[in-house]
């Protein structure tokens, strides 16, 4: 609590400073929109009146050029404002939760790590990740990043090829040092139609499942209702997914909106949370001082931070420090 109150005054001053920037920015944006709207209106009026086409087009054009100038100014200002927000506001919000937490807003989970985590079998064709937050909760190192991964399909139509982009994951990938040693790979996937069918095939007709991973049939009915589990090692999968761990993962899953995916590989646990919202972004048209946006950011950070306790990863009694 002492840390929190100590961090708060500085956060308040930062917010006050940034609020000035935000007001300038929102004014610029409003101006830009106004110029754009009036430019378009002038051109439209000119065109309707017929005789004033050229005059309307010239005046309207000038206004639109103004609006473009304002937009580009606003763009520069916004990226500065956004950087400041992440560097100062999010940073000190992080410190209010735990002194060890830091943000690297330009970095995220590297694409290779995302693929190697094996959370998803589909390889992404387009991948972005940012806002890496990392630190320790007790003895356990952890980090999380916003990730947007998509894959592409192409269909042949009359008008040529058409690209379709499908989301693999939009949300947050969390990873932490796991408290037990293991060598293989264990993946826990949401039990949707495709995964349920895949599980049925690899159970009933193992000839048709080419994967090196085997279906793991676990005892918890609640867990099996939500997830399908695969692993390279049946015993190791159960060593990781103890009855207590299954219960904890179910609880974690209940707290998040969409079903989570979990993988255990290379002594790390990776958890993917599909989320709609873009987190850690500053508001432009809403005040920073009364904003609820920061509350949402804080609550997601607290949620991620609490996973360590939730999954009991600080209990280090299994031969791994």
């Amino acid at each position: 609590m002492a840390e929190e109150t100590a961090a708060l005054p500085s956060l308040q001053t930062v917010l006050n400073e940034l609020e000035v920037q935000r007001k300038e920015l929102s004014n610029l944006k409003i101006k830009a929109y106004l110029f754009l709207a009036s430019g378009i209106t002038l051109i439209a009026i000119g065109a309707m009146l017929g005789s004033l086409v050229i005059a309307g087009a010239i005046c309207g054009g000038i206004l639109i050029i103004f609006s473009i100038v304002f937009f580009s100014k606003a763009g520069q200002k916004f990226s500065d404002y956004r950087d400041q927000f992440k560097q100062r506001v999010v940073s000190s919000a992080l410190k209010s939760i735990d002194q060890s937490l830091k943000i690297e807003y330009k970095y995220g989970l590297p694409e290779n790590d995302f693929i190697n985590s094996q959370l998803f079998t589909q390889r992404p064709d387009r991948y972005t990740s940012e806002d890496q937050i990392y630190g320790n909760a007790g003895k356990t190192q952890f980090a999380f990043s916003e990730v947007h991964a998509e894959y592409k399909t192409e269909t042949q139509t009359k008008n040529g090829r058409q690209e379709h982009w499908h989301t693999i994951l939009k949300g947050i990938v969390f990873w932490a040092d796991f408290n037990k040693n293991f060598n293989g790979l264990t993946v826990v996937k949401p039990k949707d139609m495709g995964n349920a069918l895949g599980a049925w095939i690899s159970d009933k007709m193992p000839i048709f499942s080419s994967s090196s991973k085997q279906l793991v049939k676990l005892e918890s009915p609640e867990f099996n209702k939500a997830f399908v589990t695969y692993s390279t090692d049946q015993v190791e999968a159960r060593y990781i997914l103890t009855p207590a761990m299954m219960e904890r993962l179910c609880e974690l899953n209940d707290k998040s909106g969409a079903t989570i995916s979990v993988s255990f590989i290379g002594s790390y646990v990776y958890i993917a949370f599909p989320l709609e919202k873009d987190y850690f972004e500053p508001p432009v048209f809403k005040s920073l001082l009364t904003t609820k946006s920061l509350d949402e950011d804080l609550s997601i950070i607290r949620f991620m931070y609490s996973i360590i306790a939730e999954l009991d990863l600080n209990t280090r009694i299994w031969g791994k420090e």
Binding site: N181, E219, Y239, W318
Partner: peptide
């Protein structure tokens, strides 16, 4: 060290038993 290895092997035995039961 022995203590944590012991605990580790306990959990592994439990896991192996569960695998056997499955």
């Amino acid at each position: 060290n022995l203590q944590s290895t012991w605990t580790e092997s306990e959990e592994q035995i439990a896991a192996a038993r569960r695998t056997y039961n499955a």
